[in-house]
Design a protein around this nucleic acid. Structure first.
Lengths: 159, 159
DNA sequence: TTTATATTTGAATATTTTTGCAATTGAAAT
DNA sequence: ATTTCAATTGCAAAAATATTCAAATATAAA
């Protein structure tokens, strides 16, 4: 079904963007972006997406996507370097072709994979080109937005 | 106070060691190691320790300190079946993205190709990912069934 | 020590989350 | 088209978790 995956993307976007501390709160936020549903469904969605609820210094509790909270020191340094190799991204159907500087494709693809993005099923890398398969029901903008979280300036590389 | 910090240490130890899925369950486990308390206190302790509750493939939910959960059950067992480098398969449109253990993709793709399946036009393999192009008019279930003939347990790997 | 202040806790309660079930919808097969 | 099977959902109830409040306990200052 289409609506479900769209809703899941919307949920990810909201959770990555702001601090949500209950499913009822999320319910309201989703309405604002056109997704009407019930709290029971959200409970199932959050379970599916492996979203965790964890204590937050400011608010009491917030929801968090695995990679956002837990990924920290280890791979951060590795994260940044290869991402400068990205040169452009273009879409065709549910695929994207990303161009990198020669030799960078595998490194970049590895980083993309390791983020375990919901929007991206997987990647295949050559030397300077990455083929990226997007999830059904996910828009190009969704993919760009998700990748832009760790590829600075990607927005400007869309051809 | 002394007892509290001891309890916190005990909680950490338990959570890192085994899969706990409720505070009541944790309550019992703590008794075994000499810490009598109540659920209310555990709620506070878990908040203090920033322990997250997250979905687990096997049990419903488990508590988790940091990324222990996310990496655990991935790479644990190394069996000896021929094709069991395969970890998952997902579909998007007329394509499937198959994930394998690192380095396995080419080997698995070769085997798939050599079966000359009607359902599969062809494959492209990277290091741990295979892109699989399905024939038009063939359903996702068809592809899975065809592959399952020689990839044991593939049915359970469909995400 | 004694008083004042802050922390910790349990019991009860409020809130939040999960789940069983039945109805609905969608996709595939006949 | 009709039937079958599986996936998705809402509702209501159950289960789990967080918090309020008051009491108990520790900590600090005099």
């Amino acid at each position: 079904m289409k609506i479900k995956s769209q809703r899941l993307v919307a949920i990810r976007k909201i959770i990555q963007t702001q601090k949500v501390s209950s499913q009822d709160e999320l319910l309201v936020l989703l309405e604002s972006s056109g997704h009407i549903t019930t709290q029971a469904t959200l409970s199932r969605d959050l379970k599916f997406l492996k979203v965790a609820k964890v204590a937050d210094p400011e608010l009491g509790y917030i929801y968090s996507l695995g990679d956002a909270v837990f990924k920290k020191s280890e791979e951060d340094s590795i994260d940044d370097f290869p991402m400068n190799g990205v040169k452009s991204i273009e879409f065709s159907g549910n695929m994207a072709v990303m161009k990198t500087r020669p030799g960078f494709a595998n490194g970049v693809a590895f980083v993309i994979d390791s983020h375990g993005l919901y929007e991206v099923l997987g990647t295949i890398a050559g030397d300077d080109t990455i083929l990226l398969i997007a999830r059904e029901g996910v828009s190009k903008a969704d993919v760009v937005h998700a990748l832009a979280l760790f590829i600075p300036g990607l927005e400007d590389m869309v051809l």
